[in-house]
Simulated assay, not measured.
Amino acid sequence: MVTLAEVAKHAGVSASTVSYVISGKRSISLGTRDRVQRSIQELGYHPNAGARALASSKSNIIALMMPLRTDMYVPVMMEIAIAITTAARTYGYDVLLLTGEEGSAAVHRVTGSGLADAMILMDVELEDERLPLLRESDKAVVLIGLPADTIGLTCVDLDFAATGALCAEHLAELGHRDIAVIGEAPAVYERHTGFAERTLDGLRAKSRELGLRMLHRPSEGGYAAMADTLARVFDERPGTSGFIVQNESAVEPLLGLLRQQGRAVPEDVSVVAICPDQVALQASVRLTSVSIPAQEMGRQAVERIIAKLAGEGVDGVDLIAPELTVRASSGQNPL
């Protein structure tokens, strides 16, 4: 079994420095910390959790609150969770996954005990009921998502407002003027989930700026729900030539129904998606898309948590700029 002393020798530092990097008790320069973490990873060092906790009164556990709801795309959430777990291990932390829809009760359970040293929260709502408890707690907390009021909070997320604007701008540049947004399930908007609401804000603002006529229609996904949604769109706006999809389960049903109606993509109708690259690349038509940077979001959240635990973190919002990749599903408006 690899010892702490062997890690110290490999990294060219003292044993106490390795201990401080693992415990976060003292501020260590970024270069030294990186060198120690590389040595830990290369040698396969695993600190003894029980001894570590007794010595420091810390659990060396990060609680990840990730409610698994049926109206959310679980693979993306799990990709973020895996990124968080992987990044946390490089700092000597394990991750406790809380998947229930307990809300503030789960926060109270964590903050009122030694269960975890810090928390990362996902599925953030604009008026999230968990926030008052978080603001009162002395635990290190990072949100993956943005509430309406971010004062006193640390948040990491894709810039979803800019994402919506980027999708609308792309279709406008191709000459589309009537666009429809196929959104998440209705329950996502009823909860005022932050990422969905901010995407809509960006879409609406950019559509007004560019003179686009925009319809937003939430959808449960699946062929039956998508057939009803698509029929409504073309009944209300027969000239719709551009679709923006922010619902992974609606992507393939939409493409299939358009084919059934004799509408070719992208010759007759353009489709842009906000989704993981895997979904965009495996669709029946390779989709022009803005990718969800799940791994980057998870990594940044852990880095902000570790900085807070080391007494170096400051509150604030880190937004990842969206990148749109043009593929086979978008083209010039034929009308």
Rank of each mutant, 00 (worst) to 15 (best):
R191H: 14
A185Y: 06
L171W: 04
F195E: 15
H176C: 02
E169I: 03
A162H: 01
P186Y: 13
T163H: 04
A168L: 06
H170D: 00
A185S: 12
L166V: 09
A162F: 00
E169H: 12
H170Q: 03
V181W: 11
T193M: 15
H170G: 00
A187K: 14
E190A: 14
V188W: 12
L174N: 06
R177Q: 13
F195P: 12
T193I: 15
G164T: 06
R177V: 09
Y189A: 09
G164Y: 08
A162M: 02
L171G: 03
A168S: 04
A162D: 08
I179N: 00
I182R: 03
E173C: 11
L171S: 01
C167A: 09
E190R: 12
G175P: 00
R191V: 05
I179G: 02
T193C: 13
C167D: 07
V181Y: 13
G175H: 03
E190S: 12
H170R: 08
A180S: 11
P186K: 06
G164L: 04
T193H: 13
H192G: 08
A162E: 07
D178L: 10
D178N: 15
A162Y: 00
H192W: 11
G183N: 09
V181S: 11
L166M: 08
H176W: 02
V181G: 04
G175M: 01
H192L: 12
G183C: 05
A187M: 14
G164R: 06
D178V: 06
L166A: 07
P186D: 11
L171H: 02
P186W: 11
L171R: 00
H176G: 04
D178E: 15
L171P: 00
F195W: 15
A180C: 10
A180N: 07
P186T: 10
L174M: 14
G183A: 09
V188I: 12
A187Q: 14
G194H: 07
A165W: 00
H170Y: 01
A165S: 12
A185N: 11
Y189Q: 08
A185D: 06
E184A: 15
T163K: 05
R177G: 09
A185P: 07
G183D: 04
Y189R: 10
L171F: 03
D178M: 13
A165F: 02
V181F: 14
H170P: 01
G194D: 04
G164Q: 09
G183H: 11
G183I: 03
A172E: 11
L166F: 03
G194Q: 07
A162R: 01
A162C: 01
G175Q: 01
L174W: 07
E184C: 12
G164H: 10
A165V: 03
G194V: 01
H176D: 05
T163S: 15
D178A: 13
R177S: 10
P186H: 12
E173W: 06
A168R: 00
E173I: 02
L171V: 00
A180T: 07
G175A: 02
A185G: 09
A180I: 05
H170W: 04
I182G: 05
L174K: 08
G183Y: 06
